[in-house]
Design a binder for these strands. Structure first.
Length: 575
RNA sequence: GCGCUCGUAGCUCAACCGGAUAGAGCAACGGCCUUCUAAGCCGUAGGUUACAGGUUCGAUUCCUGUCGGGCGCGCCA
């Protein structure tokens, strides 16, 4: 295992050199080179530091070069332009990094200080079936959870499902009716229809509506019979979710479910506590906290309502309870909320109040991992042609069947069982990758054609790179592959350089909670491998070159597979 | 009205605390399979980074303003 990433290593060496060159504390500003002709990495810190010290930037850069210790790391250091230092890493150094990565289960990624991190994601409403609106949270959250776990953190997945509220009175009341009619199982088979039917009954029959309201009271009062019915409904609904999670390859389990109802008993206590702290004000019959940090339309402090006029609680209340639970019980260092960007204001207010009320220690990070809306190709929110929400299960099935058709067309030689398996991995992978590869904060256009075109920055391209590597090893058979990697060709250098960046990219992705960083990297890596594959025939070479190239291919394969795995996407042996 | 966010090639997207000539893919055009999977590789073309100022040695990035889109703003989540 390496004890530091490439960026950490270069930063440390250059920071020392800046200090030695008379610019103590200067940030070396190390980055991958903007263009290949500038080398592999560049240090851009000389300009800024020289400015502060009123020195000539090129002279400072020269002094840094004179002092920097990069023996065994870099071949050449050159000053360019106003004071850039271009760094060309040595073949031997890149080879040693690659060899170290190959020998390490974590592919050379050093483990950071361990944290407990809560990842709140997916969180569907159990009253209905999951639809495409739940896709982004589920996919992004799952990728982040995998990534953080890979880095050695204690990850606490929290599926904050909607399992509470007035609609469950209606649903349990309807469940009783259907049960009496003897068709519970059939009725719950399609949750969407069940909900719709219950709503129709509710709107059409005042007697039923009264029963429904009565059930809400009983449910909240802890009535054993209604609770049992409610639980039965939740079980069925959760099973639907779990079927989706299995299809998607998402790691959430029943144990990760901690729904709104889990905080029910705590809500009065939260309100009482806020009142005791003097934060609470009664306004128009509601219990509110006024936050000076936020202004409403009249320029007055914004009201954050925690209890309604009728005494009912809101999501703001349960989110405050959630905050206390994650801090006080789970003792997490960092809490991520993978939730639609439209709830941004709510989270800002929640976090502000949470800190003000002392529910969250100063050193606990709270992050709203916001994402944009999934759009149709017409640029409007993704819907069916008739304007209905698209069921998630239908979208996923379509992805797999489209992938199956494409696989059958591209590779008719594969047997049907394999084709099914490939279609699964490719279809689901394409949907996930299309989402994860975009900057999560922006809205993105959902397009079957571009995600399944199998070209460019897509899951199939990455999976294809994996199959090419697997193909090499199938052909290689018994050839020795325990020899060390040696770098000579430019394509080998470029590939090894890309491989050496893995740890930094994983760190940045986790730090910023931006999965597209990792996607962009894997695409670059696959591209570099494709070039290497074309330029440096592996099995046509001999001896140590053959062995070295096989090892390079092996490390690339492991890195791609690991990277895809962190995104929740399957790598393939053949496709 | 206030707040958040976005505006980059014909299309879909990048651009890592401000760095060099703003990069990919698709679409267009031209090459490369008796050689490890051509779902690939190489090349050509394509830009006033919405607009106008400002800060800076240097701005897609930071600040101000304008225009345009999306979203949010007291009892839904």
């Amino acid at each position: 295992m390496n004890d530091s990433t490439l960026l950490q290593l270069l930063n440390a060496r250059f920071a020392a050199a800046f200090t030695a060159a008379g610019a103590p504390g200067a940030n070396p500003v190390i980055q991958p080179a903007a263009r290949p002709e500038f080398g592999d990495y560049q240090a851009n810190g000389a300009m800024g530091a020289a400015k502060q010290l009123k020195k000539n930037p090129r002279e400072l850069a020269q002094a840094v070069i004179d002092h920097v210790d990069v023996s065994g790391i870099a071949d050449t250091l050159e000053i360019a332009g106003p004071g850039f230092i271009n760094i060309k890493l040595s073949d031997a150094f890149l080879a040693s990094r690659a060899n170290a990565a190959l020998a390490d289960a974590k592919l050379g990624v050093p483990l950071p200080a361990k944290q407990t991190v809560v990842v709140d994601y997916s969180s569907p409403n159990l009253a209905k079936e999951m639809h495409v609106g739940h896709l982004r949270s589920t996919i992004i959250g799952d990728a982040l959870a995998r990534l953080l776990a890979f880095l050695g953190h204690d990850v606490v997945r929290q599926n904050h499902v909607g399992d509470w509220g007035t609609q469950f009175g209606m649903l349990t009341a309807y469940l009783v009716e259907q049960d009496r009619a003897g068709n519970t199982a059939i009725a719950l088979d399609d949750l969407e229809n069940f909900y719709r039917a219950a709503k129709v009954r509710f709107d059409a029959d005042p007697a039923f509506a009264d029963t429904a309201r009565e059930y809400v009271v009983k449910l909240q009062g802890g009535d054993a019979q209604v609770r049992a019915l409610w639980q039965q409904f939740l079980d069925v609904s959760l099973s639907h979710c779990e079927a989706i999670y299995r299809k998607l390859g998402v790691q959430l389990t029943r144990a990760d479910v901690r729904g709104e109802s889990a905080y029910n008993d705590d809500l009065p206590r939260v309100v009482a506590d806020l009142r005791q702290q003097g934060l609470l004000v009664e306004d128009q019959g509601a219990q509110v906290v006024f936050l000076d940090e936020f202004k409403n339309k009249e320029g007055e402090p914004a009201a954050y309502i925690v209890q309604k006029q009728d005494g009912g609680y809101l999501y703001s209340t349960s989110d405050l309870a959630t905050l206390r639970y994650r801090s006080g019980t789970l003792h997490c260092n960092r809490s991520l909320y993978v939730v639609d960007a439209r709830q941004g204001l709510h989270f800002q207010q929640l976090f502000t109040l949470g800190r003000k009320a002392g529910y969250v220690p100063a050193d606990m990070q709270l992050e709203h991992v916001a994402f944009g809306t999934m759009m149709g190709e017409d640029g409007r929110p993704f819907k069916t042609r008739s304007g209905d929400t698209v069921k998630l299960v239908e979208l996923l099935d379509e992805a797999v069947s489209r992938a199956h058709a494409l696989v059958s067309e591209k590779n008719p030689d594969l047997d049907e069982a394999t084709r099914q398996q490939v279609a699964q991995a490719v279809g689901i992978g394409a949907v996930k990758y299309a989402d994860l590869s975009k900057h999560r904060t922006s809205d993105y256009v959902f397009s079957w054609d571009s995600m399944l075109s199998f070209e460019g920055n897509t899951a199939p391209y990455l999976q294809y790179a994996c199959t090419r590597i697997a193909g090499v090893f199938r052909k290689a058979g018994e050839l020795a592959v325990d020899a060390p990697i040696a770098i000579t060709e430019p394509a080998e250098h470029a590939l090894a350089l890309e491989l050496a960046r893995f740890a930094d990219v994983v760190n940045a992705t986790a730090a910023e909670a931006l999965p597209h960083f990792l996607c962009g990297y894997l695409y670059q890596l696959a591209t570099q491998f494709m070039r290497f594959y074309e330029a440096c025939p592996i099995l046509k070479s001999e001896g140590t070159v053959l062995a070295s190239r096989l090892q390079l291919a092996k490390l690339t394969g492991k890195t791609l597979e690991t990277g895809l795995g962190l995104l929740g996407i399957e790598a393939l042996e053949a496709m």
